Computed example of a mutant assay.
Amino acid sequence: MAATRSLSRRLESDPESIERDLFRLVLTIIELVRQLMEKQALRRVDDGSLTEEQIEGLGTGLMRLEEAVEELKGRYDLATADLNIDLGPLGMLLSD
């Protein structure tokens, strides 16, 4: 009986809080993918495997993605630090 009450308390949450937390998780995943894409793009630039047009396109795309993430963070009053998840002994999920 106590376990049922405990579970029901955890499930009862403010709908706005749930929406914000879910949005925070989605933005965390988007930010992680953006950072990975940026690192891969920099590796490809350093390798010389991209044309000037490809470099320009990647840079523009990454800048637009970063701007969109910043705008979305503003809607929910989130900072980049809010998106970072502590993975314990592995450290933080997102790089600075």
Rank of each mutant, 00 (worst) to 15 (best):
M1D: 04
M1R: 06
M1T: 05
A2G: 14
L7N: 12
S8F: 13
R10F: 13
R10M: 12
E12F: 13
S13F: 05
S13R: 13
D14I: 08
D14T: 05
P15G: 00
P15R: 00
P15F: 01
E16H: 06
S17W: 07
S17M: 06
I18E: 04
E19Y: 08
E19R: 14
R20G: 04
L22H: 02
F23N: 15
L27D: 02
T28N: 04
T28D: 02
I29F: 09
I29H: 03
I30A: 12
I30D: 07
L32M: 09
L32G: 03
L32W: 12
Q40P: 00
Q40H: 12
R43M: 11
D46E: 15
D47R: 10
G48Q: 00
S49C: 12
S49V: 15
L50Q: 03
E52S: 13
E53W: 02
Q54L: 06
I55H: 13
E56P: 02
E56H: 12
E56K: 13
G57M: 13
L58S: 04
L58R: 07
G59W: 08
T60F: 13
T60W: 05
T60S: 15
L62T: 04
L62F: 08
R64D: 07
E66K: 15
E66W: 14
E67G: 02
E67Q: 06
A68Q: 04
V69L: 15
V69F: 11
E70Y: 10
E71L: 15
L72S: 09
L72Q: 12
K73D: 07
G74H: 15
G74Q: 12
R75N: 04
Y76R: 03
D77N: 11
L78P: 06
L78S: 08
A81D: 06
L83V: 04
N84H: 08
I85P: 00
D86E: 05
L87D: 00
L90G: 01
G91V: 05
G91F: 06
G91L: 08
M92S: 05
M92L: 09
L93K: 01
L94Y: 05
S95K: 01
